[in-house]
Design a protein around this nucleic acid. Sequence first.
DNA 1: GTGGTCACG
DNA 2: ACGTACGTGACCACA
Length: 895
Amino acid sequence: METDKQKVLLIDGNSIVNRAFYAMPPLTNSSGLHTNAVFGFTTMLLKVIEEEKPTHLLVAFDAGKITFRHEGYAEYKGGRQKTPPELSEQFPLLKELIGAFSIRQFELPGYEADDIIGTLARLAEEQGQTATIVSGDKDMLQLASDGVTVLLTRKGVSEVERFTPDEIARQYDGLTPNQIIDLKGLMGDTSDNIPGIPGIGPKTALKLLADYGTVENVLEHADEIKGKVGDNVRSHADSARMSKKLATIFREVPMDWTWEQLAWSGYEADKLAAGLRKLEFKSLIERLDLYAAGTGAAGGSGAEAEPAELLVYQAVENEAAWAKLNGDLQAADLVIVESHGDNPHQSEGIALAVATPERSYIVSYEQLTGPEAAKLREWLADEGAAKTGYDLHRAELVLARSGIVLRGQQFDVQLAAYLLDPTEADPSLAGLLQRHGLRTIPPDEAVYGKGAKFRLPGPDALRAHLAAKAGAVRRLAKPLAEELDESGMRTLYYELEQPLAVILAGMEKLGITTKAEALEELGKEFQVGIESMMASVHRHAGMEFNIGSTKQLGEVLFDKLGLPSGRKTKTGYSTDAEVLERLAPYHEIVQLILNYRTLTKLQSTYIEGLLKEIRPEDGKIHTFFRQTIAATGRLSSQFPNLQNIPIRLEEGRQIRKAFVPSEAGWLILAADYSQIELRVLAHISGDEGLKEAFRNEMDIHTKTAMDVFGVTPEQVDSNMRRQAKAVNFGIVYGISDYGLSQNLNITRKEAGDFIEQYLSAFPGVRRYMDDIKEQARRDGYVTTLLGRRRYLPDIKASNFNLRSFAERTAMNTPIQGTAADIIKFAMVRMDEALKSRKLRSRMLLQVHDELVFEVPPEELETMKAIVPAIMAEAFPLDVPLKADVNVGTNWYEAK
DNA sequence: GTGGTCACG
DNA sequence: ACGTACGTGACCACA
């Protein structure tokens, strides 16, 4: 036996795995095996290892009396009982994983896990070492002593509570650990088949033990105990003795093991990563991936042998290091900008990694603006110095805040990964590595997150993190680029998305001038309306309440006023506009609420929300267009969203008056595609009637009405046109009779008839809808005209809902996505045109089918000519594309 | 953090 | 029989 102070960690395998099984939500790996208990167990194990830092480690399992290894049956004391098959199937997985941790596991015929643990804890303590026991079983508390601590799992297995003799005394009315056995002897334990004494629960048992100390002494003085309790004690003395015996952990298991066999010096990262990957425990793999901080190279390893040079880094903080970096810049080809926060227009830079294939240089952000970084800044701005990175769009914006220019963006692994699978849930660098079977890095949250358990302290950790990111990007770049080629998305990436990223960053940096006074004035008007609506609503309700609370509103409308309640949401009454509109005829209050909703929406989101986003320095709003969010390939806009500024209702539309040109006398020019999605449909479906309609510049909704209702153009009234318009929307969205019936407030049958009429009138569309679904089933994905992909795994789901959703998506995505491709192309062309013609006009916004510019008056005629032309010619289809142009002194007027 | 609601294409 | 229109982002209330 060793003599050094040891920390022995003893884990009660059976009790933990059982608790984990019943506490964790179901979890299965891709081959259908249940893994929830293994996951829970592993989480717990990592946690206690972190906290206890044991030198010796053992997981004990029951044997002999209980085994889970056969056919899903557990042999308990006194019989066989069926265990859930999902639990028994997890035992082999668990044992394998414990092996991957390099932890010893024991089971001994004839003994239970707690006997083994009790014996080892005794031996450890006798030899002056400390032992910690982890279990879900309160019985274990009897083993606590000065040298032995018991950790009981809580909240399933996600937390542990620490029991020392003092803590046991505090929670159990002064009981010593040994008296836990006596407690069980008296009160029993139904879950463990220990009878105890009938009628004696925890309260009585604790009182008796306070008075008499032990079961034996209680029995000896049984005649002193009064009443029913006394009777039961006297008549069940044998049961009490037996119960105490059953509850007593046997601490004399004969064993000839040595401590060396239990010595544990940590897991082997390779082996463990392989084990975790097999179980598909992605989050745990990330958590485990620690660095050897401060060594200048990241440690650990995993999925793939790590080329060490990828992780060699140099902290740039003295003259010599700067000289080395400057000398190495011509070989640099990779840049990572680390920054705080989500909004790149207000995030502070943290540090920068610049990497050559041999090493990474880590520069703290403060140094970046200093004189020593002049050459580095020159390299960053050099169009000819090709750069690879991760989210270079964001990097460009962050750097721009310090006046630093980024150019030469050549390959962005985030953008590439988005094209390869735009619906991937985890687009983080860590997630990308995971899916490519590459050695992972801790997710950012682990390094910067508030409650991050595995947060790495100090500047070395930050540098290591950046170096690892740089290495990760380098390893990802090549396979991703190859996959783009193989998937036919080379042009889409290099000719469209990558150039667009730079154009978008330019638009965002430019921003759009927004008049705060105009918003404030409008806000005052809204406020008058809001207060008036609120007062009226409260008067009608006969009480004051928060109209903005759907809960309170539902109570007022449906309980107090007794209006007929319609749909329910999962939390209560539904009170959305659709429901309220049906209720309007019943009570005046309803319309007032609808008006209140409209006004408060405008006030909070568009007046207050936009005012907050106007930068005092330049009086502009700088949105952030995201290129890697929408599954269809559309852009999205954040901080604030400038793609959903009101237009449909006049009150809201006034908001647009606040968006003005940034220079006096200039104008806002807005150009929007006319019916781009239906034109795309005409093209990809090849439907002759639809194509002909667009070639003849027909009003497409009138044309649809004619064909669906079988009438002449003169006979189409506004109602027929309205319904036809809804049918066209339905077609684009992936039609269903139910959806259309809801939208038009007609029966499903009627909606179904409309659809049938439509599909008969446009047989090419019917063929497209069938073909695209078939294609999705065959390939597993659908594509746009430019080869953008979207995978639809649910297309083969047996669940009707999932499958139907996937089918509608299959029909819609090529249409919406191709329209997105086209306007993106138009943006690239426009950018080129503005540059080559040396125009001062600037592209400011994109709103899915619309481009917004600010234009000096002398360029107005030119722009009015070239913008719609470029948009129309961006991508030639079998039908003409058309863009309408409008001009005004603000965005409102450009209609 | 989640759900309900509503703004846009 | 199943119970949906497609794609987003922001705000508020409430746990």
